[in-house]
């Protein structure tokens, strides 16, 4: 018995030490692995280009994002097509406004929404799920039923009340997004944690008396990252589209400002009316950005996988 315990402790110490060492080399390792992944690197470049475009694209714009080109208003299908000469590089929207400027401005909003939403999900969702799963028992049960409730209450009323009580602002948009983005993530993190906490390295850490919070942060969370990162990239498009629902209720982005969700929605509505560019340009940026996020996510997953050597 005595021997057993001693052996266990020794084993655990070794293991902990090993983890420490690995912890330091892990990042460098991960970076190396990430930059060896071609798809991920290309995606990173594409994403950077999109960001650069959204920041500096405006400098060559001829029209602002709100000016109506009265000359083509009413004849968009005939006169509103993409055209270098009149300055509508991406064509015009149904109201004769410059799509190029609108896409740039929409890109800023939607990138921000997607990234902030995913970040909230990653931070709040992962920690919440890991704590619930690791603690288990009553705490787990109460914490997860809380998630069930939040997920089932009519979200629309929460948004409407936010609008009425606090008024509209970009910050409230993020509050609205943040309220729901982490829910599924917490479930996934908890499920994984339930399984992880029975693994030898966690049991060993427990045996050596490491504090629960430290175990969660040092041992559980790093092992969750693979699935968390992949799921976060799935969340990005969801958040970007949720924004247009929030804006529908009046809480989010208001005209004359716009977002990818709003632009795509408008373009999709008009797709059979000969103004396909209204769908194509916003969709193009939406798609290349999401592709980039996905491949970066996969690259990160592969790079961060603690088991991968």
């Amino acid at each position: 018995m005595m021997v057993d315990v001693q052996k266990m402790e020794q084993f655990a110490e070794n293991l902990a030490a090993q983890e420490e060492v690995k912890g330091r080399s892990l990042l460098a390792d991960a970076r190396r692995r990430f930059f060896h992944n071609k798809a991920a690197v290309v995606s990173l470049i594409v994403l950077s280009l999109v960001v650069v475009f959204s920041v500096f694209g405006r400098t060559i714009a001829v029209w602002s994002n709100e000016e109506i080109d009265w000359g083509i208003l009413g004849q968009i299908a005939e006169l509103g097509a993409p055209n270098i000469e009149n300055g509508h590089f991406f064509g015009a929207d149904q109201l004769g406004r410059d799509l190029y400027s609108r896409v740039i401005q929409g890109t800023q909003v939607s990138l921000m929404v997607g990234v902030v939403g995913a970040l909230i999900a990653v931070i709040v969702g992962t920690l919440y799920g890991a704590i619930a799963g690791y603690t288990g028992g009553k705490v787990d049960n109460v914490m997860m039923r809380f998630v069930d409730i939040i997920q089932s209450i009519p979200y629309m009323f929460v948004l409407i009340l936010l609008l009425v009580v606090f008024g509209r602002s970009l910050f409230m948009l993020f509050v609205g997004i943040g309220l729901i983005s982490w829910l599924d993530m917490s479930r996934i993190a908890r499920g994984q944690t339930l399984s992880l906490k029975n693994k030898e390295f966690v049991e060993a850490a427990i045996a050596t008396g490491v504090k629960p919070l430290t175990i969660i942060l040092r041992h559980i969370v790093p092992n969750l990252l693979g699935v968390v990162v992949v799921y976060a990239t799935l969340l990005v498009p969801q958040m970007i589209l949720t924004e247009s629902f929030i804006s529908f209720l009046g809480l989010g982005v208001q005209e004359p400002n716009t977002s990818w969700g709003a632009l795509i929605n408008e373009g999709a509505g008009n797709m059979q009316y000969g103004t396909l560019w209204q769908l194509v340009f916003p969709m193009f940026f939406f798609i290349i950005t999401l592709f980039s996020f996905f491949f970066i996510g996969d690259g990160l997953r592969d790079a961060l996988d603690p088991k991968e050597r």
Binding site: N141, V142, R145, D148, I149, S152, I153, P154, F157, V158, I160, L161, V164
Partner: peptide, 25 residues
């Protein structure tokens, strides 16, 4: 145990939703 906790969970859900709904303009 899970079924037992489902009942107060649903009750809480009903009450929160009810209040939210009536608070909305």
């Amino acid at each position: 145990r899970r079924v037992a906790i489902a009942i107060p969970t649903l009750l809480l859900l009903i009450i929160i939703s009810f209040l939210l709904m009536h608070a909305a303009p």
